[in-house]
Design a protein around this nucleic acid. Structure first.
Lengths: 139, 139
DNA sequence: GTATTTGCAAAGTGTTTGCAGAATA
DNA sequence: TATTCTGCAAACACTTTGCAAATAC
């Protein structure tokens, strides 16, 4: 996971896609397609919004991203952690995220899955709060 | 909670709002504003989409609804269960929902809240699967 | 040279809002 | 009568898609 930008996305490897990958890799946190696009163009890269969307879609389909939904319904993306499925605690103010240990929840979900009568149980768990930096002073 | 339709929503009580409340009450499950609107007009009620949205917004602001986000980003609403905060397991095919016992998760969230350094931790937990009716035959 | 990818603009979602007319208190 | 509410249409934000030009192989 050192150089994530060297991953294969579509049938061909292109500069634009490498740019998107690099920009995404530079983000330590969740970003929306729009944010990524804005950052890229702001830093001088020439890329189309559709390309950003399409690249993220492709990565998501390939299961290489964690995605989450913003309160406003915007989709946020982040490289999937190497160890697979994770959940994050996201700051409502600055959007910084931090992975949390979810073993207890995963076990509980398995239990539900086994006893509910439902099949193929999937789960989404989103935690938000105010991080230490945003919490004490302003509020 | 017997007759939920008799709740106060805005400053005045109107027929249209009562209609929305009744339609919502008739749903045992999560519905989107659009679905509710469609059902209402389909059953002969004359109402505007904006009114449905505004009524749901008002109820939501008043904390009288549970809301969740559809996979497509659509917002789904449901009367809040009388006992407060709940989580549901929703069928991906027929949208039927079933409340699940989330004590374990609630405890875990409290633990995170206490040890993460984050303040005001809120959580969203969404479970989806295929219910018994949708599961065995078709897939 | 052929198939994929790109970017623009247009179309498509679900949701919100401005405003004039209708309804409530 | 003075507010509040309603419904339409227009505005919005995010996302997807059609298509011709550019690019990778």
């Amino acid at each position: 996971m050192t150089d994530a930008t060297r991953q294969r996305v579509g049938a061909r490897s292109t500069q634009k896609r490498a740019d998107v990958l690099q920009a995404l890799d530079a983000c330590q946190d969740f970003v929306s397609a729009q944010q990524l696009y804005t950052r890229m163009t702001a830093s001088g890269l020439q890329v189309g919004l559709s390309t950003v969307y399409r690249t993220l879609q492709a990565l998501d389909r390939g299961g290489r991203l964690d995605t989450v939904r913003d309160t406003d319904g915007e989709r946020l993306y982040r490289w999937r952690s190497p160890s697979g499925h994770r959940h994050y605690l996201i700051c409502r103010r600055c959007s910084r995220s931090q992975a949390v240990d979810t073993d207890a929840v995963e076990l509980w979900v398995e239990h539900i899955s086994a006893t509910s009568g439902f099949a193929d149980v999937e789960h989404t768990l989103e935690l938000s709060g105010l991080c230490p930096d945003c919490h004490p002073p302003a509020r």
